[in-house]
Design a protein around this nucleic acid. Sequence first.
DNA 1: CAGTGGTCTAGACCACAAG
DNA 2: TTGTGGTCTAGACCACTGG
Lengths: 233, 233
Amino acid sequence: MSAPDRSSWEDIRAEVLRRLNTRVWKPGDLIPGETELAREFGCARATVNRALRALAEDGLLDRKRRAGTRVPLRPVRRASFAIPVLREEIEGRGLAYRYVLLKRETAPAPSEIGTAMRLGSAARLLHVTSVHLGDGAPFVFEDRWINPEAAPGVTEAPLERVSANEWLLMHTPYSQGDITFTADAVRTAEAAALAAAPGQPAFVMERTTWNLERPVTTVRQVFAPGYRVRTEL
Amino acid sequence: MSAPDRSSWEDIRAEVLRRLNTRVWKPGDLIPGETELAREFGCARATVNRALRALAEDGLLDRKRRAGTRVPLRPVRRASFAIPVLREEIEGRGLAYRYVLLKRETAPAPSEIGTAMRLGSAARLLHVTSVHLGDGAPFVFEDRWINPEAAPGVTEAPLERVSANEWLLMHTPYSQGDITFTADAVRTAEAAALAAAPGQPAFVMERTTWNLERPVTTVRQVFAPGYRVRTEL
DNA sequence: CAGTGGTCTAGACCACAAG
DNA sequence: TTGTGGTCTAGACCACTGG
């Protein structure tokens, strides 16, 4: 009735998915073990394992040693999306990309920046603000602090031409980071650069990254009103 | 110098990651092939494959047949986060969860809903609005349309007690969907339920799901001002 | 303690794309 | 054409955990 003749782990994944979506296997059910499924599909256990592991990574199955593989009662689905490299995001929409450096200075870290980056006191950072435009219209306003010790050469980088975003991607790896998304009102200081009215709702992305425990950069990106992040499940 | 004595694919992953973060292998570089790495690490090629595949899934390597494995010039990192089941999201913050059904009616789909769900004309849907509260304070306002044909039994579901969110999770699987995030101004119709002023910036999540090509539900969730989504990289 | 998933191996063949 | 990653296999041992 079901098992495909030619198996690959993706076929098995698809078939298991079908059984989940058609409720052949219902939430709370224990599904057959890998060995039995391997027999049914006529393949090696490792192949079944690959398929089930992929589904478990998507939150569609719960797997535990000894306990077996179970259909979760309330599947916790995960959404994932690419963190946009702004130039590509903008060009991907068919718009001409332009980037304008607004400010570049070396300054002691304000306390909230120091906290976000878990910096010691009184570190001097590179502070850069800029706008990314699509077809001449402001797309994102960016306020960034960079730790020169973790990004050697950044003080001499040609940030008039290359956005800090891209310069860092090419010159400074990072091993960990965190992102938050918020809706925030456009601030007075940002309004002009964004060609938006202060107080308008804007999508805001804040990121801080570290490389091997050393803080690299923290950035606040304010997207022009109307921006949408879209992804599939 | 580097290769751990005892290898597992995670050790190899970690070691490769270290070489990327310390720029032993730089952006644009071609790294050694699986066979050679297997020799270096003293393990089977499949083990190296597992490690490199994991890194490639995170966007930290580019792999192509025949061409080999390359360190991307501009790594496209992906962020992923769990789509919150609201009750758990709220309880996870240590708040008491409460849910209030505001409206429940059967109505023809408005055109924008029909479009989002790719419905034929004149379908009658179940329309539900509700609020989820944490310690009594509005947390999310939810405006949802459900296709009864894809969610049998939903018309009789006790939505006064169980949120449509949870009822659907337990009773109706979905195979695909899309999500968008936006910042939007709180609408007048939502303001009272959210205890927020109209026009305030709010984080908005819109989701539509299908099960095997049949539209299941579309929902707009407006989070109370100040809400933040946070995840790690 | 026993049964499940987690991992590893050695070998094989295949699919793809660069030269 | 040829070398690379992608996948599969059959078998093995291990780690965790439920009963």
